[in-house]
């Protein structure tokens, strides 16, 4: 696999538990950024970064608009905005229409990142009950990136990774226990 310049993890229902299991096992000296886009309730804002920060010594922060994307940091997409990736490897936020009933939409981040990071992008889609992220994975593949899904059999809600498996070309299908090691080896 190519050197990884960014890992983006998307998820919906049932994905938080996965993140809470995976984060503690991550190498604290990651050589790339991790961007987390998960659906959450309107207004439940600042809680998620805090919750995740408790599980890792990596810096965890909610994304600010126009913020440069740096290695070794875990970025969490804010609720009620789409997170887009700019050519100069910074974030833009956008409050346009929901996509797949979701804002943030995983598709929006996967798709804009696909063009920017190309073959140095890895996108991982976790448990969830809608098909957000599937089109994104198709774009990631089209731009030469690496697509990964949580093994639907290990997902609390299999629909999202299953849809991805049905419609996109998936490079790796991982059980929860295998994820941390996979990510650490991307460095």
């Amino acid at each position: 696999m190519n050197k990884c310049d960014a890992l983006i993890i998307g998820g919906s229902a049932g994905s938080l538990d996965v993140l809470l299991k995976v984060l503690p096992e991550l190498n604290p000296a990651l050589s790339f950024p991790i961007i987390i886009v998960v659906h959450r309730k309107h207004g439940a804002d600042s809680l998620l970064p805090e919750l995740l920060a408790g599980r890792t010594s990596l810096i965890v922060k909610e994304i600010d608009e126009k913020e440069p994307i740096l290695a070794g940091t875990i970025y969490v997409a804010p609720s009620d905005y789409h997170t887009l990736i700019e050519k100069d490897r910074s974030f833009s936020l956008d409050c346009s229409e929901k996509i797949n009933y979701s804002r943030p939409a995983i598709d929006a981040t996967f798709q804009t990142a696909a063009e920017v990071y190309r073959d140095k992008l890895v996108c991982l889609l976790l448990s969830g009950s809608n098909a957000d992220g599937v089109n994104g994975l198709i774009s990631v593949k089209a731009w030469g990136g690496t697509t990964v899904i949580q093994d639907p059999q290990t997902a609390q809600v299999a629909y999202m990774p299953q849809q991805a498996a049905n419609f996109a070309k998936i490079d790796y299908t991982l059980a929860i226990e295998a994820m941390a090691e996979f990510i650490n080896l991307l460095s």
């Binding site: 887009l84 700019e86 050519k87 956008d94 346009s96 804009t112």
Partner: peptide
């Protein structure tokens, strides 16, 4: 304008 957003639009 932010490029990623305008391009998406």
């Amino acid at each position: 304008y932010s490029k990623a957003s305008i391009k998406r639009r």
